[in-house]
């Protein structure tokens, strides 16, 4: 898994690529908590390069969503690959997360 971040307008765009699973979810969790605690309230996660997510990974995204929402911010996701979208649909996450097709829409 690789995680990079770049500021685009009001949003902090986080790009996750590769596999997000039990071996590395802690790394992402730490980063996300770091961003949220340092005051980033608008985060968009670009998942175009994410090709696998385990339940531990889903938990980290949920945690981030809850924390940001509680702080009055926004946590958007975009560009889900088909298999990831399917997992989101099965888990019922599409009704909880704001999922966009393109990054531009996610940070609009």
């Amino acid at each position: 898994m690789e995680v990079t971040d770049v500021k685009k307008g009001e949003f902090l765009v986080i790009n996750i690529s590769g596999r997000l699973d039990t071996s590395n979810y802690g790394e992402l969790e730490k980063k996300l908590i770091g961003f949220i605690e340092s005051g980033d309230k608008k985060i968009a996660v670009d998942c175009s390069g994410l090709n696998y997510i385990s339940s531990s990974g889903l938990r980290v995204l949920l945690m981030a969503l809850k924390k940001i929402t509680a702080a009055g911010g926004k946590f958007h996701l975009c560009c889900l690959q088909d298999n990831i979208r399917e997992i989101f649909e099965i888990a019922g996450f599409t009704s909880i997360f704001r999922v966009f097709n393109t990054l531009d829409e996610a940070i609009a």
Binding site: A91, G92, F93, T94, S95, I96
Partner: peptide, 11 residues
């Protein structure tokens, strides 16, 4: 058929 309902324990 799936129901689209969410996981337990979070919301």
């Amino acid at each position: 058929p799936t129901t689209g309902d969410i996981i337990l324990g979070c919301f």
